[in-house]
Amino acid sequence: MNLIQGYDPDTLREIVDPRECVTRLAEIEHQRSLPVLLERVWLLKVLDRLDEALELADETVRQARMAGTRKDLLRARVLHATVLQNRGANAAAAQELATCASEAEGQGWAGIAAFAHQHHGKNAYEVRDFEQARESFKRSLFLRRAAGADDSDLEKALRAIEAAERRSAMEADALV
């Protein structure tokens, strides 16, 4: 089920229908599997219920550490970092995302590394470090291609690169 309707051009955050997200959250509220916990964290995050999202993200990381695979743990840590980002803890989010991206690349997990780099780019974009954002998005694109991602995932990465370049140019023009 894809609840993402698009991306905000100013923040690159997901645009969702809150009613659909609340409905989905109610459907899975009492399930405890790791994939469902990850989905619940994401739903709480996009609904801007960040205190609940952080608490559940912490629990999800613990569960992944105890009962999941290393890939599961990386996915949980990336999602946890995105909650930190949405809460305004951009430095902590950047650190965690960079660590996750590096670890995933070291293991040869291109898909997870691309996911971490994409979010690292979004975090940099949000704090107006458009050069770092562009570099992270470009790395995500490269890794997505290597992982055989479909065209829609490649398109998302390309649009993010373009957004970072456009914002960087706008800021440069404003300084002149």
Rank of each mutant, 00 (worst) to 15 (best):
A133P: 03
K122R: 15
E103F: 01
A101P: 03
E103C: 04
L141M: 07
A101E: 06
A114F: 07
Q132G: 08
R139W: 03
F137T: 05
E135H: 13
F142P: 00
Q118V: 00
Q132W: 00
A133R: 00
R128M: 12
F130R: 02
V127R: 13
A113E: 12
L143R: 14
F115N: 05
R134C: 09
E105K: 14
R134V: 02
Y125T: 00
E135Q: 13
R139H: 10
Q107I: 11
A113F: 10
G111C: 04
Q118G: 07
S140E: 07
G121K: 02
E105D: 11
A133E: 01
H117F: 10
A124V: 01
A133L: 02
G106V: 06
E135L: 10
Y125R: 01
G106R: 08
S140G: 15
K122W: 00
A116H: 12
H119V: 02
E126T: 13
Y125C: 01
F130H: 12
G108P: 12
L143M: 10
R139E: 14
H117P: 01
H117Y: 13
V127K: 05
Q118H: 15
H119E: 08
K138Y: 05
A114G: 07
V127W: 06
E105N: 11
N123Y: 00
G111S: 13
A116F: 05
H120E: 12
R128K: 14
L143N: 11
W109R: 06
K138A: 15
D129E: 14
R128W: 07
E105I: 03
A101W: 01
Q107H: 12
K122I: 00
L141I: 09
I112M: 06
G108H: 10
G121R: 04
G121W: 02
F130Y: 15
A124N: 02
H117E: 14
W109T: 05
I112K: 00
A101C: 07
G121I: 05
G106T: 07
A116M: 08
H117W: 15
E135N: 14
G111E: 13
A116Q: 05
S102W: 07
A101Y: 03
Y125N: 02
R139C: 11
A110S: 14
A113N: 13
H120P: 00
A124T: 00
A116C: 07
A101K: 05
L141F: 14
H120L: 15
D129H: 11
W109F: 08
G106I: 04
L143S: 09
E131A: 14
R134N: 09
E126Y: 06
D129R: 13
Q118M: 12
W109S: 04
S136N: 11
R134H: 14
